[in-house]
Amino acid sequence: MKFLDEYAEHYADCAWIHFPELEKFMEEALIHAGVPAADAKIIGDVLIESDKRGIDSHGIGRLKPIYIDRIDIGIMNPVTEIEVVKDQDATAVLDGHNGMGHVVGHKAMEMAIEKAKKYGMGMVAVRNSNHYGIAGYFATMATEAGMIGITGTNARPSIAPTFGVENMLGTNPLTFGLPTDEEFPFVLDCATSVSQRGKIEVYGRAGKDLPPGWVIDHEGKTRTDTKQVLEDLTTGKAALTPLGGIGDMTGGYKGYGYATIVEILCAALQDGSWMKALNGFDENHKPIPYPLGHFFIAIDPEHFMGLETFKRIAGTICRQLRASEKAPGEDYIFTAGEKEYLAWKFRNEHGCPVPPSLQKVMVTLRDRYKMDYHWDFEKK
């Protein structure tokens, strides 16, 4: 398969580290940073799941800059205290009190699943949380329980509205997980922008320019200078384009609309914060917490026509899509979640690719916390 050939070639300069070691390293680093052991295990599981699925923007690459660094400067609490603000039959509202988003998200989706078992559907809204890793992790918590999982989160402003240039909305993924009768679920986990900051960071670590159309400046012109873009996204001098691209000719209004839906559902249900309140800086440009909101929905097919019926039809639809006529020069049609499954199979054998820039970060954390790790890439 062409995808796998290109996949191996893409990581030619990386060191390969097996998942158990990498997950253990992340857990230990988080514990040294003040995270309780049980919470560090949840966070490590979310982060390693990203690396397993080939989503390099949200795994080990986020450990230091998003979590440990924010703990260090005091804008994220390593100990997560979850308050149940409201709990009714099929719904609940939680307050994460600026704790670790993965831990809050795990608790929220567990509650949604339990409610769905009893009532057919469950929804939990969260406020005052933090970045919770890949949204697909929580959607697949539901698929593993034989349910449909839906989740979304707002984020610091990055996307400009259609015909605008100011970063107003977060990348705001709207994520679905659907159980199938195949070896893997259908999981659509993507930002409502053409790209997202994590992928731009991957380009930055590789020293590559961005593709045109991902980012615009205040003149509405596309930007490709990755390093400066990362700085300008933070200061508001650049903005991501919504899914569909610049303007409305290619449907940019669709991504803009979906991003707005997620923003509202992550703020209005739980009386949380939104848009510019999530900037992460005060009026003097000093770092402050990002009080993010999330929502989690679980739907139990057993309360409709049954799980097996749902899985059979969902799987059949996916197989029919893959079997449809292919474009000239293409050897395969994928369905959502399939590339991540193939990445998992490949990486389960070879390990996780760690580029030189992340190798330096791992060495820095190991030395800082005096952890007993020695990697082959240090011998080169």
Score class of each variant (00 low, 15 high):
residue 100 M to A: 03
residue 174 L to Y: 04
residue 178 L to Y: 06
residue 107 K to Y: 09
residue 81 E to L: 07
residue 116 A to E: 05
residue 184 F to C: 12
residue 117 K to F: 10
residue 130 N to I: 04
residue 141 M to S: 07
residue 142 A to E: 11
residue 88 Q to V: 15
residue 67 Y to W: 11
residue 131 H to T: 03
residue 144 E to T: 14
residue 185 P to E: 06
residue 113 I to Q: 06
residue 133 G to I: 01
residue 172 N to R: 11
residue 100 M to Q: 11
residue 75 I to Q: 03
residue 159 I to E: 03
residue 149 G to T: 09
residue 104 V to Y: 06
residue 161 P to Q: 12
residue 166 E to G: 12
residue 170 G to Q: 03
residue 102 H to M: 12
residue 51 D to P: 02
residue 132 Y to V: 10
residue 135 A to H: 02
residue 101 G to Y: 01
residue 118 K to Y: 13
residue 151 T to P: 01
residue 180 T to I: 14
residue 67 Y to D: 03
residue 180 T to M: 11
residue 112 A to K: 13
residue 72 D to E: 15
residue 168 M to K: 12
residue 73 I to V: 11
residue 143 T to L: 12
residue 90 A to M: 02
residue 88 Q to A: 14
residue 168 M to T: 00
residue 108 A to M: 09
residue 59 G to Y: 04
residue 125 A to N: 13
residue 177 G to T: 08
residue 125 A to H: 08
residue 176 F to R: 13
residue 81 E to Y: 11
residue 59 G to D: 06
residue 173 P to A: 13
residue 145 A to T: 02
residue 176 F to K: 10
residue 149 G to M: 07
residue 129 S to H: 04
residue 169 L to A: 06
residue 73 I to F: 13
residue 171 T to C: 14
residue 78 P to Y: 08
residue 106 H to S: 10
residue 73 I to K: 15
residue 166 E to C: 09
residue 73 I to Q: 10
residue 168 M to E: 14
residue 122 G to V: 03
residue 164 G to R: 12
residue 114 E to N: 09
residue 154 N to F: 10
residue 98 N to D: 11
residue 113 I to E: 06
residue 146 G to N: 01
residue 147 M to S: 05
residue 170 G to W: 02
residue 81 E to C: 04
residue 84 V to E: 14
residue 71 I to P: 02
residue 163 F to C: 08
residue 165 V to L: 10
residue 100 M to R: 08
residue 109 M to H: 10
residue 168 M to G: 00
residue 95 D to C: 10
residue 139 A to V: 05
residue 137 Y to F: 12
